[in-house]
Design a protein around this nucleic acid. Structure first.
Lengths: 205, 205
DNA sequence: TTAAAAATCCCCTGAAAAGGGGAATTTTTA
DNA sequence: TAAAAATTCCCCTTTTCAGGGGATTTTTAA
């Protein structure tokens, strides 16, 4: 019996995954969490065999959580969950100990197979994830953003201006401006409007 | 046997709804569409008893689609699907012939019950939807935006400036600016960044 | 058919963002 | 420990946005 733990902040995804795994033989849902903290909390007194882990969590990125889990509990296998277009994140997550990757709208069969594979110590990359990992293809890569950039991106999205953000973070307005320009250029966006749309749609904030 | 048709542009919601209804006795999924056009296309040669209809579709609002369906096929019952905070839209959709409303992250039982109720000719409002409809509560109301405003909002989100949008729509830049100001004021947003975040999060675009 | 709503257009001013450049310091990571 | 990455800061100019007005025409709905 493979004990599966789910970490995903989106209620609909949670619901979908739970119903997909509900009647599967050999697989048992042993718990779930909506954020990284409660996930880490669970594993203090409990355990699991495989964690289905979303890449985007409210309090910590999936990459960091993956690292934390694999450092403390190397025996637990982490299977990343992503939407499309997250190639860079796929790479980062694998580098930090994930055993595989599944696209969120994958079918039931693929998900089950992936769980069994990683539980057996193998690596599983869904076809789309494999595609997304290739550097030289046409799939849009979401560039990695740093912690500070994410912080600033969130404040921009909340409607704060550069001087306001500078005040909140105790840095200069010029610095905020630099980060903003970096975000625009690395995301390849024309202006704030398209940047925020892209960020929200890809769960960067 | 109640024949149910699903119209929702979100793949994860589609998947979730389909799996929720999959093994339900007395309910049969007779088709689904990702947009209003293919929904209308389906009903030229087919029919259904209940349509689960998302409020936000890429090509037409759920309100308009609801109106169109109820005008042509009054016997088909429309059950609206919304996220929270869409009180104004709930009202509009009911005014245009919808028989009820269910919150997207409602449980299986509630969804099934709602389908049976509206199929029986009754009205179903999920508790949260009922809450959202009350004018005098603390739930954030999403103001209704006009067709033109939505059009302009989308172009802003794509990164176009006022003059660029003006060129595309063959109107003056001042007019675009007026619409933009209206959007900011009716949504009660500080600037473009927060406006776009709000719009994307509430599926307005 | 007539009132309400939506869409159109213009004025003004100041604030904010975008685009260009460069550079120093701190933190991570290999 | 050295190289790489992240964070910090500043200069300049031009464009775009936001806030404040007001007004007309067209469309929609009661």
């Amino acid at each position: 019996m493979i004990r599966v733990f789910i970490v995903d902040d989106h209620p609909l995804v949670q619901e979908g995954l739970r119903s997909l795994l509900a009647n599967e033989k050999g697989i048992e849902l042993c718990g779930y969490a909506m954020n990284a903290q409660s996930c880490l909390g669970f594993f203090i007194n409990n355990t699991a065999d495989v964690i289905l882990m979303d890449i985007n969590l409210p309090d910590m990125s999936g990459i960091e959580l993956c690292k934390a889990i694999k450092t403390k509990y190397p025996g637990i296998m982490v299977l990343g969950l992503s939407t499309l277009n997250q190639g860079s994140y796929v790479n980062k997550m694998m580098e930090n100990g994930a055993s595989g990757y599944v696209i969120k709208n994958a079918g039931k069969e693929e998900l089950i197979e992936a769980i069994r594979e990683v539980h057996a110590g193998k690596t599983y990359l869904s076809f789309e994830a494999g595609q997304a990992m290739r550097k030289d293809n046409s799939i849009i890569q979401i560039p990695l953003i740093t912690r500070r950039e994410k912080e600033i991106l969130c404040l921009i999205a909340e409607g704060f201006t550069n001087p306001e953000i500078a005040g909140k973070l105790f840095i200069s307005s010029s610095t905020v401006d630099s980060h903003r320009k970096n975000l625009l250029s690395k995301m390849n966006m024309k202006n704030t409007a398209s940047l925020i749309k892209f960020a929200v749609e890809n769960n960067l904030i």
